[in-house]
Design a protein around this nucleic acid. Structure first.
Lengths: 250, 250
DNA sequence: GTAATAGTGTCTATCAGACACTATGGT
DNA sequence: ACCATAGTGTCTGATAGACACTATTAC
């Protein structure tokens, strides 16, 4: 499937245009927590003839647009905004997968990002989102088969997330701006899939200078709780140790 | 700088060939330790007219070859073998940087890997290596200015290496197959740029089931030392804690 | 013996885990 | 008063850091 083309530029020995280029795409693994379960956003592949994996569920993503996107991250942010309407979540590059087998059409590279957003308050009902849905993660997997190598990409993103949650403040990005320490602990527990000790958790979080109290209290049918917000919403915090001295995986 | 071309294939709404593709490259940051100092391999850019950054030092790398390379990692391994003759080092993807500014010619993406190899025994005198050289890292930098955004890429690779050394067995790949615990400790100290406690280091390494003794002793003008080798040379080992409870930086 | 490096033991500080305890609102 | 959740205090165990100590070779 070689590309016929007219040579338009010759620079020294190398003709830049003559080099066959892989296809470049960006895929985004968008995580959120709904009803105490980690969810990921999936979209359906177009079902027109000739499209690979027609109608199948896949990670949201697509081609890098060299006109619109100044760099890879802004390409990922563009796709995130398209699908969720969210503008400033946590976004991190997971890695890149490239090869001649992953897309049946040609040699392709995908650049995978993962994003964390607070529990969505409105449903995905935008014009572009009729075929998008949140899927719960059960056993590190999603209940449907995914297009391309997206199952592998999703697995890698989950691994990265779970691993990093052991020693960073990442789960704070799964919550709205103001939250209680119990809320935050719950996010850790949902992602790590194990309970944490309340006392140790609070000491750890408070001594890490991660959050600061706001002058509000959240009431309820029990003792009200102090509300906090992130001290530096832009940068994630690294804890000096992992939660429990257990083997890290990755 | 748009690409003129003949349309050769039309698939549904999208014409795959009409999409302007970024240039894909792979760069490899090859680390080794020479005389107690971390070094990195650099090559000079070609100096023909029209080449960007002619004659400047740069990370070894180049275009992904969709004919030769089945995936990104084998592309990185190919470049590593070309430059060093080494076949099975430690190789890890650091990340990808793409944008319209980083190469003056066009929108480009580079996929950065870092490799660890034992101290080279022979000089870089292969036919392709006349313009390659080992540069010591002083203060996380190299003494020469680098082409493209390679200074940033190198910085990221060093950060990754130093961060990961705190809790993994990576420095073992900077040594030959058999080594003493003192050798290993020295590799950690070189990368971390700080001394480690001998006693704590030995307990940590031995209890992690990282190495196993071989039936040999290394002599010298002092008490001879037990030789060890990696228990599982293929997989890196994660320690349950970092070396010293200090803030991690990434 | 001396020099030099290999390898061990002992004490301490830090922090996570466990778990019991107190605090404070709604009903 | 009772329930439910917020928040604290105390003890223990694991391990890194510091540092002194012993061991074994060449000379």
């Amino acid at each position: 499937m070689k590309q016929k083309q007219t040579i338009t530029q010759t620079v020294s020995g190398i003709n830049l245009q003559a080099i066959e280029r892989p296809l470049s795409t960006v895929d985004v693994v968008i995580f959120t927590v709904i009803e105490e379960l980690l969810h990921v956003l999936l979209v359906t592949r177009p079902s027109e003839a000739g499209e690979p994996f027609p109608g199948m569920w896949a990670l949201p993503g697509g081609f890098v647009d060299v006109q619109k996107d100044v760099d890879l991250e802004s390409c990922a942010l563009r796709k995130l905004l398209q699908k969720t309407g969210v503008k400033t979540p946590y976004l991190e590059q997971v890695g890149s997968w490239g090869g001649n087998k992953r897309d049946p059409r040609c040699w392709s590279v995908t650049h995978v990002y993962f994003a964390l957003i607070p529990t969505p308050t409105q449903n995905l009902q935008g014009a572009h989102n009729l075929n998008a849905a949140w899927f719960p993660l059960e056993d590190h997997r999603v209940s449907v088969k995914l297009a391309f190598d997206h199952a592998k990409l999703l697995e890698a993103a989950i691994q990265r997330l779970r691993n990093k949650v052991e020693y960073t403040s990442l789960p704070a990005y799964l919550l709205p701006e103001e939250f209680t320490l119990s809320d935050l602990q719950r996010m850790y527990e949902v992602v790590l899939e194990r309970p944490l000790e309340k006392s140790a958790f609070r000491t750890r979080v408070l001594s890490a200078d991660l959050v600061e109290p706001v002058d509000k209290i959240r009431g309820g049918p029990n003792r009200p709780a102090q509300l906090y917000r992130l001290t530096q919403p832009q940068g994630i915090v690294y804890f000096p140790r992992t939660f429990s001295p257990r083997k890290m995986i990755e």
